[in-house]
């Protein structure tokens, strides 16, 4: 009961309150609503701390059991400990903490993501084919937007209109229609999931076990 039922009742009470407070601007409701938001931020902070500690535990176990590539786990832990010590000893304003962010985290993280430029080029060459009418539509729209959204599009004209004009129209109308349709679907889906959480139908966030 304390392991599953009470947490679900707790979720129902908190969730239901947060729905109805939207419609009742009473000072008492407002005060509780503010309190819930304050608590939510602190709890989420703790969740993030625990999540990072779980990652530390994962690497410690790999090192203890000498799993394949455990030396890389040692590197990861060394990086983590150095950064934490830099933050604690030198503070978060400037100093080694900021230096490590500027010259290690920033270049490594941005380089990692920049690799995608190469892979998106290779993948487009291999997979972006006009195999059917719908695939051709996707291809043509993609190429027009690709060219229309850079200055080159202003110099290429089709039927008296520049590719920039055509891409602007595509983005403003057919694209907006597609994105709006998806957005409305997502909105309904999110609402249904939120209701299932409050009503105790969706319980996966509690984890497995009783």
């Amino acid at each position: 009961m304390f392991r599953r039922t009470i947490p679900l009742i707790f979720a129902f009470v908190v969730g239901t309150f947060m729905v109805i407070q939207f419609f009742i601007p009473h000072p008492t409701f407002q005060a509780i609503y503010n309190g819930v938001l304050d608590w939510q931020q602190v709890i989420f902070g703790f969740v993030l701390v625990v999540g990072t500690l779980s990652m530390v535990r994962h690497h410690v176990i790999r090192i203890q059991r000498k799993k394949e590539g455990y030396r890389y786990s040692m590197v990861a832990l060394l990086g983590l400990v150095s950064m934490v010590l830099a933050g604690i000893i030198g503070g978060i304003r400037g100093g080694p903490y900021k230096w490590m962010f500027d010259y290690i985290q920033m270049p490594a993280q941005s380089s990692m993501f920049s690799l995608l430029a190469f892979f998106v080029a290779s993948a487009s060459y291999r997979a972006f084919r006009a195999r059917s009418v719908t695939a051709t539509l996707l291809l043509v729209a993609g190429v027009i937007v690709m060219l229309g959204r850079v200055p080159a599009g202003e110099y290429i004209h089709v039927g008296g209109l520049s590719l920039t004009d055509i891409s602007t129209w595509i983005l403003d109308y057919p694209n907006t229609a597609a994105k709006r349709g998806i957005l409305i679907g997502v909105g309904l889906g999110m609402t249904a999931t939120a209701l299932k959480i409050i009503l105790g139908i969706e319980t996966s966030y509690l984890g497995r076990g009783d």
Partner: peptide, 15 residues
Amino acid sequence: TIAHLFMVLMIVIGN
């Protein structure tokens, strides 16, 4: 701009 033109060129070659 030039990178986009290169991407379009590769897509055209593939097609």
